[in-house]
Amino acid sequence: MSSFSVAFHNRGDVRVLELKGELDAHTATEFEEAIEMCKSNREFRIIIDGEHLAYISSAGLGVFMAFVEEIRAEDGDIKIAALTPKVFNVFDLLGFPMLFDIVGTVEEAVQLFTAGHKADDQSNH
């Protein structure tokens, strides 16, 4: 039986979702609910911490696609961090690195957010 869980952390004003276990068609709803929750809290800067994500199926990948447009429309983003090589390969085959920021650590992802924020601020001035 595949098991899956989502843990919530905060890095400043960035929400970190730590995924554990196997994300497939059965567990995708749980991941969906987690992102829905971020949305309803108006937390649009989301980092997916994939260090403990053992497996992801196409249905799991579909969740990223389902939300990313809305979140980007709210000036936020979903950034993906710390994937294991095997899971990264699944993202990579489909061309996700072309569509998402996929970085080695959560720290890097946080930095991308703050840098991006500064860049936005500068462009506003």
């Binding site: 196409s58 579909g62 969740v63 696609m65 389902a66 447009e69 085959l93 489909l94």
Partner: peptide
């Protein structure tokens, strides 16, 4: 296609 669906 729905947003969450893709085809390889």
């Amino acid at each position: 296609l729905e947003r969450s669906v893709f085809i390889s």
